[in-house]
Amino acid sequence: MTDQYRGPGLFKRVGAHWVSYLFLLPFAGAFAVFTVLPVCISFVNSLTRYSMLEPPVFVGFDNYVRMFTDDEVFQLAMKNTIFLALIIGPGGYLASLLLAWMINTLPRSLRTVFVVVFYAPASVPGIYSIWKIIFSGDEYGLVNGFLKRWGFVTEPISFLYDPTKMMMVLIICQLWISMGIGFLSFVAGLKSIDRQYYEAAAVDGVKNRWQEAWFITLPMLKPQLLFGAIMAITGSFGISEVTVQLFGFPSTDYTVHTMANHLSDHFSIRYDVGYASSIATVMFCLMIGCNKLVNRLLGRVGR
């Protein structure tokens, strides 16, 4: 252990910690081969023209140049994605935090029921299609039927094809499915806070639930808050299946076209792996930037 403080000797230090590396090895092996290696290959792919049928051709930064100078749809998609991320990221995040916090005070059986129900939309695959029934553009859609019955409108509103309404519908649906793993981690994290702290705080003069939340709960929950933030970022940048299911592909005037949609389009429809990989790289950089920002904000919790 003393080796640690004696300058270089990296080999000795690594050798002294062989047990730690042994613990890390099974995960690290699987992670390196099936996640890190593929990500690295994708970075390389983003510099090529590659159609999966022919071998890749190196083209330098052509894909990136094309994306930012020539591809108007991409620029629109980027604008949409950032807009959605700014609303759905914080919205879904705060909603999951608030609900998890409210659930936390309930007795166990009731808590389990609420957690299961809240997590359901995020866990049942392909379930967004029921929003098509709710927002259907004819009088049979639940919302249109309601609006017409009470005399708010005379003609049904085309929620799914009218560019002025689509964004709003998408935001509602996406918020509905945003109680995912981040929400679960908040629920579990709140349970991991020792009750002693609350009792001590009550003795020390914490009077209501708001003070308790700010001075005890949130600071203790910080590791989970960081986790939830990254999940919110990746979730809000990755929106793609929902838009295809609800609005079709491509959506009217590309109103709700996201970067992930654009990526799928080039990847699964046009087999342009190189271009799709470079879109993934741009998304990657945007998410890293968001993460930096969020970390700075979360640094202020409980102060």
Binding site: V33, M283, N291
Partner: peptide, 18 residues
């Protein structure tokens, strides 16, 4: 943490290769 931010859809091709 960084690997979480890479679109898993594109990883399909390199994973297939591996």
């Amino acid at each position: 943490i960084l690997s979480l931010m890479f679109s898993s859809e594109v990883l399909f091709v390199p994973r297939m290769l591996v």
